[in-house]
Design a protein around this nucleic acid. Structure first.
Lengths: 187, 187
DNA sequence: TAACTATAGAACAGTTTGTTCGGAAACAGG
DNA sequence: CCTGTTTCCGAACAAACTGTTCTATAGTTA
């Protein structure tokens, strides 16, 4: 593999997220990205079709990372504890690992792109994990509604946490979130 | 007041939301708005600074309408029933009244502007209505977290409903939402 | 009718976009 | 080390978009 290629990709991603920190997505121009990345104009267009394309690539990379499966090789300690707490904390930790990129996106006027991408994968995830018959009052609810509600409210909680600069302890966030939604799938 | 002024404002708002239905916000140009509205270029800039300004105005108008206070003069029937169900249904109905505008926005790449505006006002609303001491398991939760959670999850539910073309009965949506969150403030 | 106000639309300079092209530099494999 | 390939640089360019200014026209108010 040609090292020049990766070097350029990294320079573009870096320049892009840096710009996102200091100005709105809408007012970023390809020329600014090119200048800050220190690359040639034609080089940029050889890699991406425009700034929308860069955004998509950055978001995809974040999504892949945040929802990457729990494995023994990952740094986090989830030895066998496949509880809801563990999964939620795990996702929050992955989110925080991409701190700079996430915060840049979450405050930008294109935050919706990240939210859409994460939401889709969360829905699929929860769909698989949620029991088919729900306990208590949740039994009266439509299961599809519950799945979407859980995905949406978790996403909202997580992005709010990011917007606050990841100030709170992820364990605390997981705990509060579970207190709010646990009646829907346990007890 | 000069009727020409209002006529131009309406033409711009109409052209803008129509364009939002057939293409993304990012790729709309002021020239397109001007052409579709059938107005002069200088006229447009006499009313707004650019397309961002138009978006802001449209969103503001929607927010004002959706969260307008319940009054006896409003068409809806909420005679004295100041229950949670009534308030939630009321908000959903107001949302649906702006159907075309909402759907255009909700699908656009600038959906975040509407969401931010609504969220702010929802938080203030819920902050006022939520009891200071929460019952049951919710007693263990941070009240600020609960307020934001309720606002975020309601917003998410409502916008999801809009995205689905307001297909479901608002009474049903209110019922499902309340089944999900009621443990947090009653019983 | 007279004074005022909003509009149409042409013209303009400045910016941004996406493409093309020729030459220089870095790279991979033998 | 040599050679063919890949990537990069950056200038130049046409096309599109932006926001402003100006003049003439037409609707509005008193």
């Amino acid at each position: 593999m040609d090292r020049r290629f990766d070097r350029t990709e990294r320079a573009i991603a870096k320049a892009f997220t840096e710009l996102l920190c200091i100005t709105s997505y809408a007012s970023i121009t390809t020329s600014e990205i090119i200048e800050r990345a220190g690359i040639g104009r034609s080089t940029f267009y050889a890699h991406y079709h425009g700034k929308d394309d860069v955004l998509r690539a950055v978001v995809q990379s974040i999504c892949d990372h945040v929802l990457s499966p729990v494995g023994p090789e990952s740094g986090h300690d989830f030895s066998g504890h496949h509880t809801s707490e563990a999964l939620i904390e795990h996702t929050l930790l992955h989110l925080r690992e991409r701190e700079s990129g996430i915060r840049a996106l979450v405050f930008s006027d294109s935050a919706g792109v990240l939210a859409r991408c994460l939401r889709e994968q969360l829905v699929a995830h929860i769909e698989r994990m949620l029991p088919h018959t729900l306990p208590g009052n949740a039994g009266k609810m439509d299961r599809t509604f519950v799945v979407r509600f859980l995905a949406g409210s978790f996403l909202d909680t997580a992005l709010r946490w990011a917007r606050d600069g990841f100030a709170e302890d992820p364990v605390y966030i997981a705990e509060q979130y579970l207190l709010a939604v646990r009646p829907m799938f346990r007890e």
